[in-house]
């Protein structure tokens, strides 16, 4: 009986707090995410078209591999310089969702935890944010292959 009352006080408080939280204008952040995300993809397309024009022998697959490599490298450099997180402050998902965000999530802990040593800091902590992406990605990739094999 007493326990029930305890839960209801906390529930009441949570409902009350939820009502007090200032309603932020989410619309501008959506626009920023859209603009920055779209822009990064356009840069990717530009790199791809440029490479295929420069090297006529290059196939679509190879070009898109180059796009990933170049974007990842640039994002990693910007992270190291301390600029990527400033884009992230206003762009939100616009700079998290593109492949550049994946690169940022690997480089940022690497830079951050270097103070704890190269092996136990930089190398170990490198995947604190992006680790689950690779784990889940590989598991789902394997499952896809397996399902394809069976059916």
């Amino acid at each position: 009986m007493k326990k029930e009352k305890h839960i209801s006080r906390n529930e009441q408080y949570n409902i009350y707090v939820e009502s007090k939280i200032p309603k932020t204008k989410s619309f501008p952040t959506l626009i920023w995410a859209f603009l920055v995300g779209g822009l990064i993809c356009m840069i990717g397309q530009g790199i791809s078209d440029g490479l295929m024009a420069l090297f006529p022998n290059m196939g679509q697959e190879e070009a898109s591999a180059w796009v990933s490599v170049i974007l990842i490298f640039i994002a990693s450099l910007l992270t190291g310089l301390g600029w990527y997180d400033r884009i992230g402050v206003f762009a939100g998902a616009g700079s998290i969702v593109p492949i550049t965000g994946f690169s940022n999530s690997i480089t940022s802990p690497a830079v951050e935890f270097k103070k704890e040593g190269i092996i136990f800091g930089l190398c170990v902590k490198m995947f604190t944010v992006a680790g689950p992406v690779i784990v889940c990605g590989l598991v789902i990739s394997f499952l896809t292959g397996l399902i394809y094999l069976i059916f």
Partner: peptide
């Protein structure tokens, strides 16, 4: 290509830069 590039550049820039 993507994963290797991400890890290698993170390693290099991790060595070069400090967090701010």
């Amino acid at each position: 290509a993507g994963i290797t590039c991400a890890v290698v550049s993170a390693f290099i820039f991790g060595l070069i830069f400090n967090s701010k």
